[in-house]
Design a protein around this nucleic acid. Structure first.
Lengths: 337, 337
DNA sequence: CTCCTGGACTTAAAGGTTTTCGGAAACGTA
DNA sequence: TACGTTTCCGAAAACCTTTAAGTCCAGGAG
């Protein structure tokens, strides 16, 4: 460990100038002769001087630090958002203070106080699902941006994936391939994501003047449920030629069970997943056509808007971020696979 | 946004006492009459006063903040370590400053300077693999602990999973089931993890006086390679009765290909994976017996040792953390599955 | 009555930096 | 020489909190 950290006054006395002059030289301000600046810089380098961010923040009132409050980091949605945000901040000079509330409101309050006490310049709240969550922004002296899971308060700034639009896009892709008997297997109905994706399907079918093949099958977000749903569906609606699944896990299970029952994918049944969780979507056979929610981009965008809000240019409301359809073999036109 | 943040002097004047008395009352110190303390606390509550951590840190020299420097957050190893660390810190009053260097040494230096300038009390460096990495601790005024990826410098404090021991444990499990012709499929040889796990296998076989079935097959950490390796292996060594795989991805691919070739798992061939990546290990059929590296525990332990080091009680060296064998259906004794 | 003790409170310094303002020197012009 | 201007530098305040040291007073002991 180095002895003691050098302060600006150490630098100043080594360079033979006052503290004020040293500060000006180090911060590239005018009113310093070139030769003097040179001496100060040399002294700072010799002492490997690092300005004390606490003292600086105390004066300026800006810590150049933002809080990242997540309800459930362990979920695979929070992580990319977090990375995108960290990316956007890290490019500049911002630092990220990470807090994980583990879905506990008490713990969230606790972390919120800690962040406030550390005088963060802003806050990003990352949800674990797209279900709206209680606002934390009330009476907060700093701007807050919600990512993935929006705030219940429409005056807050939220960024969410456009699940409805993405589902419509996915189903339109199936329609363009000539599929007409499209079924839907998805997760629990208490997830807004499940309801939104079903709504997107509904809109696409309505626009094409078609009926959905059978009822929507709601289960859980697992491969096991995908397999089970395949059995139910192939029994009840044997003539389906496409399935839109609410997640890649469900799609992977569906593909596996369908193949075991002698249905070829994509020839007999085209399958579309959701999430583009690469360990599943690229490793299943055939590789899955799926919706990528661009979560890193969403996180980055949220971070950029937080910057704007810190500068006083907030843009309230729920912003729907476009998703992207990644086309792979599970929806290849017949004869190509 | 609230108007302006209350300072302790606002609290003091509202309570009709001096700043010093207010400070003592708020910090639960002696030399304050109960009634006075009462008044101060009431005033603080009314103004929703939050002490300024910057000013406090400036005086005490302790920021109660640690840096978490990761080379590759996106990897699935960094995340649990990070969570465990965050957990250990969050229980107290510590905050975590997250930096992702994206495997770039320049960016790492940059982040290091930023953290130092923010006067963090300590640093955890999370590696993306168990390969030793260059030390950052040289001449740093704060303690550093390495997690998952150890430092090259043996005087640093590092926590890594005990891959050799875990592999031995996994193979002993296969031996206990009566398997004698055990093969090994793993990832690239430039990963220390691959070499260590092979070494563990070697030790277990040597202790049992057995030879490995065929050569170790080194490829990449993917499901695709697992399938490919299965084809090679079942051709070259058709009489194998068990496979120890270097990752769950490889194991999942192996199981799938083996089943397609008419080998039953676990009856004909028992399979053990590595990582306990649940989306794979619990969803494959049969569910995978696999090694769990207890990464959250590893992260938590690293964090606790960082606390100790901050208090001046460092414990240099590479600490091997025990792993755990999670037994599932892919190694059930014959007749039980 | 005086002195001492201890409790309750205040004053002031310290921590490291930025910034405003004033001062000093140098130079040019009348 | 007197004066204005420009250039460079330093003194000091400010940010907010903690804490060491000091003040004041009541009450008890001698």
């Amino acid at each position: 460990m180095a002895s003691k950290r050098a302060t600006i006054s150490d630098v100043a006395s080594l360079a033979g100038v006052s503290i004020a002059t040293a500060s000006k030289a180090l911060n590239g301000r005018q009113d310093v002769r070139a030769a003097t600046r040179e001496r100060v810089l040399a002294a700072a380098a010799e002492l490997s001087f690092q300005p004390n961010a606490l003292a600086r923040g105390l004066i300026s009132g800006q810590t150049r630090t933002v809080g990242l409050l997540t309800s459930d980091s362990v979920g695979r949605f929070g992580i990319p958002v977090l990375l995108g945000a960290e990316d956007a901040f890290g490019a500049g000079e911002m630092a990220v203070l990470l807090c994980d509330a583990r879905g506990d409101a008490i713990r969230e309050q606790h972390h919120l106080r800690a962040l406030l006490s550390r005088r963060v310049d802003g806050l990003i709240v990352v949800g674990e699902s797209t279900n709206p969550r209680p606002s934390v922004s009330k009476d907060l002296p700093i701007p807050v941006v919600y990512a993935y899971g929006p705030s219940e308060d429409p005056d807050d700034v939220s960024f969410v994936p456009d699940d409805v639009g993405a589902a419509t896009m996915a189903v339109n892709h199936l329609l363009a391939l000539g599929r007409r008997r499209i079924a839907h297997v998805t997760g629990p109905g208490h997830y807004k994501a499940a309801r939104d994706r079903e709504e997107g399907l509904r809109q696409a079918l309505a626009a094409a003047g078609l009926e959905q093949a059978g009822q929507t099958l709601s289960g859980v977000w697992s491969q096991r449920w995908g397999r089970h749903a395949a059995e139910i569906l192939l029994m009840a609606e044997p003539e389906i030629d496409a399935v839109f699944c609410g997640s890649d896990q469900i799609a992977a299970g569906f593909v596996e069970a369908a193949r075991e029952r002698g249905r070829r994918v994509p020839d007999d049944i085209a399958v579309v997943g959701y999430d583009n969780w690469e360990v599943l979507s690229t490793e299943t056979r055939p590789a899955l056509t799926t919706v990528d929610m661009n979560l890193e981009l969403l996180g980055r965008t949220a971070a950029q808007h937080l910057f704007a809000a810190i500068d006083g240019r907030a843009t309230p409301g729920v912003h729907k971020m476009p998703c992207q359809l990644v086309i792979r073999d599970s929806t290849s036109p017949p004869g190509i696979s």
